[in-house]
């Protein structure tokens, strides 16, 4: 928090502390990314999942990585993307290894989609979509004490739409594709610098781009107005490095953007720094890239 903020904020509620290592700093073995192929699957489809597990010494081929489908619905009362029980309960392991092929459950669209689960006691509430109209099948990853959740986007159709609206939606909708990272460049003091010769103790602007076709258009159904509107995907980037510090561990997020910029404070001394980028699109797609940065005096 800036000093001016603190001075002004003293009047009201003091200052919030800065603490802990930022999420972008890799100090131990961690799961930092998951990608599914295809990025959007229908119930019964076989999906190839790949992980990005890293450590301070580099990318890790995590053979001990456990993959478990979680078929527990999230209560409306919970304020998290998946049920807390997906993290705390014992789940049957679906696969093990750095990558896995897992079949999407046939009941995925009734468990997590617009189809209400079967019930003898009346109609049940279907799952809520996200802002892009998407529904997701949760998948838990375990690596020692590390846990991650990946949510595979489901092709399920619409809830609360008329037949005509559903047909129009189906005609306009294209299943999500994973985005593709294109390039990374660096600037120090507004001057382009090579990733092999980044200055020490400098604020370096790292600019990442992705291919234009990564930004897909997709329709979203508005159940209130019973209309369909087209949107463009928003993409954002997670930054990870073994040294230095990022101002923000996630950047981007503007709808239609094809690049984002992260400000990185380079280490004080010359060293080799490993950098990983994980690109996310707003419909659950992902891409990874890794770079080796050389910091020079």
């Amino acid at each position: 928090m800036r000093r001016a903020d603190c001075l002004a904020f003293l009047l009201l509620a003091g200052c919030a502390p800065k603490m802990g290592n930022p999420a972008s700093l890799i100090t131990q073995e961690r799961i930092i990314g998951v990608r599914a192929e295809p990025a959007e699957a229908a119930p019964g489809d076989l999906v190839q999942y790949s992980s990005l597990v890293v450590s301070p010494s580099g990318t890790v081929e995590a053979q001990d990585l456990s993959w478990s489908l979680c078929n527990l619905r999230k209560p409306v009362a919970e304020n998290t993307p998946v049920s807390q029980a997906c993290l705390t309960d014992d789940l049957a392991q679906s696969a093990q290894g750095a990558s896995a092929s897992i079949q999407t459950p046939s009941a995925a669209c009734s468990n997590f989609g617009p189809l209400a689960p079967p019930s003898r006691s009346g109609t049940l509430r279907p799952s809520d979509p996200d802002a892009t109209g998407g529904y997701y099948q949760p998948l838990r990853l375990d690596l020692g004490a590390e846990q991650a959740i990946f949510r595979e986007r489901l092709s399920c159709g619409l809830a609360g739409a008329s037949l005509a609206m559903s047909q129009e939606f189906r005609a306009r909708y294209t299943a999500n594709q994973n985005p593709t990272l294109a390039s990374l460049s660096a600037l120090a003091d507004q001057t382009p610098v090579s990733l092999d010769a980044l200055p020490a103790s400098q604020r370096v602007r790292l600019v990442a781009t992705w291919s234009p076709d990564s930004v897909e258009s997709y329709p979203v159904f508005d159940s209130v107005s019973q209309t369909i509107a087209d949107h463009r995907e928003a993409l954002w980037l997670s930054w990870f490095a073994t040294a230095g510090s990022f101002d923000d561990s996630l950047t981007g997020g503007g709808e239609g953007d094809t690049a984002t910029e992260g400000t990185w404070q380079s280490p004080a001394e010359a060293e080799i720094v490993l950098l990983w980028l994980v690109l996310h699109d707003s419909r659950g797609g992902a891409d990874f890239a890794s770079y080796t940065l050389t910091v020079v005096p």
């Binding site: 990314g33 807390q84 846990q147 991650a148």
Partner: peptide, 13 residues
């Protein structure tokens, strides 16, 4: 845990 779909962390309570 990491919500790998968004890149954000979520708490376990």
């Amino acid at each position: 845990y990491l919500d790998a779909t968004t890149g954000q962390f979520q708490p376990i309570f």
